[in-house]
Simulated assay, not measured.
Amino acid sequence: MKKVSLAVLVSLSALTGAAYAQTENGITMSTDPARASDVEQRAQDLQSRQQAAAQSESEAPMKHHKKGAHPHHKKPAQ
């Protein structure tokens, strides 16, 4: 019985912590059209930057590294 009540207590405290974290994350709802258009504009700018970065990455040539070009350990002198 003690194990069950301990498990319930731990579960309730975890749920309380999760609910508290959700209210403190700074996400708010707004019906202001100017604010909504600002958020949409920033999202479009971010998406265009991501697409440009992906496009420039695909156009860049791949660099190949030669294996064994630089030995990590020197051979002992004989």
Rank of each mutant, 00 (worst) to 15 (best):
H64W: 06
T23M: 04
A7K: 08
H65K: 10
A19H: 08
A77W: 12
M62D: 14
P61F: 00
A52R: 04
A19T: 11
Q22H: 04
A34L: 10
Q22K: 08
G26R: 06
P76A: 07
Q41L: 05
K75W: 13
T31D: 08
M29G: 12
Q44L: 07
A43E: 09
Q47V: 14
R42E: 04
Q22C: 08
K74I: 10
Q41K: 09
L12M: 12
Q55G: 05
H73Q: 11
D38L: 15
A14M: 09
P61A: 10
A7T: 05
I27W: 13
A53K: 09
K2H: 15
A18L: 04
S5A: 12
A19W: 11
E40D: 14
K2L: 07
A34F: 08
K66D: 08
E24C: 14
A43C: 00
H70E: 14
L12K: 06
A34K: 05
S48G: 10
D38W: 05
S56L: 03
K74Q: 09
P76E: 01
D45H: 09
T16V: 10
Q41A: 15
A53W: 06
M29R: 12
H64M: 10
M62H: 10
L6H: 11
H72N: 14
P33F: 00
D38I: 11
H73K: 10
S5T: 15
H73I: 11
I27D: 12
E24W: 11
S13L: 02
H64K: 05
R35G: 10
P71C: 09
V39T: 03
A69M: 13
Q55L: 07
Q78F: 03
L46V: 13
R42Y: 01
A21W: 02
S56V: 13
R42T: 15
P33D: 00
Q50H: 06
M1L: 02
H70F: 04
T23V: 13
P76N: 04
Q51W: 02
L15C: 04
K63A: 06
T16A: 04
A21Q: 09
T23H: 08
M29V: 09
P33R: 01
Y20H: 15
K3N: 09
D32V: 05
A43V: 03
I27E: 01
D32M: 08
K75D: 10
M62E: 13
S58F: 14
A54F: 07
